[in-house]
């Protein structure tokens, strides 16, 4: 269970998040919607500990406040982030990327103990990665890179998985595959997931909860059923001021 309350932050003097509140229920998917520049990526960065400036607020994972912790400690606490643009280590091989994903797992040897088991699991999940394990990550296709990015984030066995536009830049046929896999992570493994996704209809299909961002604020949030008629979302993407929406929904 992730609970973000009152988080404000940005890049030095430039504020991009204002008093943000968001929750992800255990074993559920919360989808964050909003136009470009609404602050979706910044929200994920703030939760992961990668936003340069965060002032105030709480970021709690299963009751543990992580707001002041550096990014690497949040990984140990069970947060995992798949950054946008399939951000794998392109100059390293597929297997090296996965092993780096398991950096926080115990054991001294590179392929020792828990890392070996997690690597095996990643290869079972994505057989194509086993075939290409000696290839440089930068030489993979877009879809394979996204699988690698997700496999890497899953290596330490996180409690919460955050995905930033996993379908961006992928062929339409692969988009469904990726989102179906995200749903399977919830259904079969009980992962809690925070998903930022531009393909609204696809994202809503697998969502349990929805949060809508505009100008660095969450303007409305709730179970997906609230958003079923599509009116709110149409208004967010096609325009009307956020204030009216807020008063209309709370």
């Amino acid at each position: 269970m992730l609970s973000v309350t009152g988080v404000t932050g940005g890049y030095g003097d430039l504020r991009v998040l204002w008093d943000v509140e968001a929750t992800v229920r255990p074993g559920r998917i919360t989808v964050v919607l909003g136009r470009n520049g609404a602050g979706k990526t910044s929200l994920l960065s703030a939760v992961a500990g990668l936003l340069p400036t965060v002032s105030g607020g709480r970021i709690e994972l299963d009751g543990q406040d992580l707001a002041g912790a550096p990014a690497h400690r949040r990984v140990r606490a069970g947060l995992a982030l798949v950054q946008e643009n399939k951000r794998v280590f392109r100059a390293r091989t597929v297997e090296e990327n996965l092993l780096l994903g398991g950096y926080t797992l115990g054991g001294f040897g590179l392929r020792g103990g828990a890392r070996r088991a997690a690597l095996e699991q990643a290869y079972e999940r994505f057989p194509v990665l086993r075939q290409r394990r000696r290839a440089l990550a930068g030489s993979l296709s877009g879809g394979q890179q996204q699988m690698l990015a997700i496999g890497q984030a899953l290596m330490p066995g996180p409690k919460l998985l955050m995905l930033d536009e996993p379908s961006a830049g992928l062929a339409p046929s692969i988009v469904n595959e990726v989102l179906a896999m995200v749903a399977a992570l919830r259904d079969q493994e009980g992962l809690s997931i925070l998903l930022v996704e531009q393909r609204i209809e696809h994202a809503l299909e697998i969502a349990d909860d929805v949060a809508v961002m505009e100008n660095g604020r969450i303007i409305t949030a709730g179970p997906k059923s609230v958003f079923d008629d599509g009116a709110v979302i149409r208004e967010v993407y096609l325009g009307r001021s956020g204030e009216e929406l807020t008063t209309g929904n709370q």
Partner: peptide, 10 residues
Amino acid sequence: EDRDAASARG
């Protein structure tokens, strides 16, 4: 190669 991505891996 990528400081932020490395932090995000712990």
